[in-house]
Computed example of a mutant assay.
Amino acid sequence: MPERWLDGNESNIGAGLWIFGGGRRICVGYKLAQTQLFIAFSRRAYCFDYAATGEYDNLRLQHHVTTEPFPIRATIRSKEHERLIIDEATHFGCLEAAKIPF
């Protein structure tokens, strides 16, 4: 029941989320970070399809460890989406920096 966490403050990053600090000492860039995270996740949802590649074992999976492998495969949705990814990466200089073979 994920809705149990909904309390009406979902759009307010300063309410109940302490990673950016709180009160007068809250990080001055938290709104920029929130916007950039939204854009990054939206682009991943828009350009990629995700499919399971194995059994999902919720008892074995450690949600607090970032090195835990997830049994998923991400594939680019279409040639148009691939072109969008390449264009954006080229525009921001990420393609050359990462040496991604497209």
Rank of each mutant, 00 (worst) to 15 (best):
I86C: 13
S78T: 03
A40M: 13
C47A: 10
C94W: 06
H64M: 09
H63M: 09
A33L: 12
Y46A: 12
Y46K: 13
V65P: 01
T53C: 01
E82Q: 15
H64P: 00
Y56D: 03
E68C: 09
T90K: 15
R60K: 14
A97C: 05
A40S: 09
T66H: 13
A52K: 14
I39R: 01
R43P: 02
I76V: 15
A74K: 11
I39P: 02
Q62M: 11
F41R: 01
D57T: 13
C94S: 08
I39D: 01
D49F: 01
T66F: 11
D87I: 07
E55P: 06
T35K: 07
V65N: 10
K79Y: 02
H64C: 08
I39F: 11
A51C: 04
Q34R: 06
A33G: 08
R43Q: 08
E88T: 15
L61V: 08
T90Y: 05
S42V: 00
A52R: 08
P69E: 10
R77V: 13
T90E: 14
C47H: 09
K99S: 13
K79G: 04
A98H: 08
F70W: 01
L84S: 03
Y50T: 05
C47D: 06
H63N: 12
L95K: 05
I72A: 10
L59I: 07
F41I: 03
L59F: 10
A97F: 05
E80F: 00
E96V: 04
C94L: 13
E80R: 10
F92A: 09
F41S: 00
I76H: 01
S78G: 02
E68G: 00
E88Y: 10
R43E: 09
F38Q: 02
I72N: 05
A98P: 00
Q36T: 08
D49H: 09
L32P: 02
A98V: 14
N58I: 09
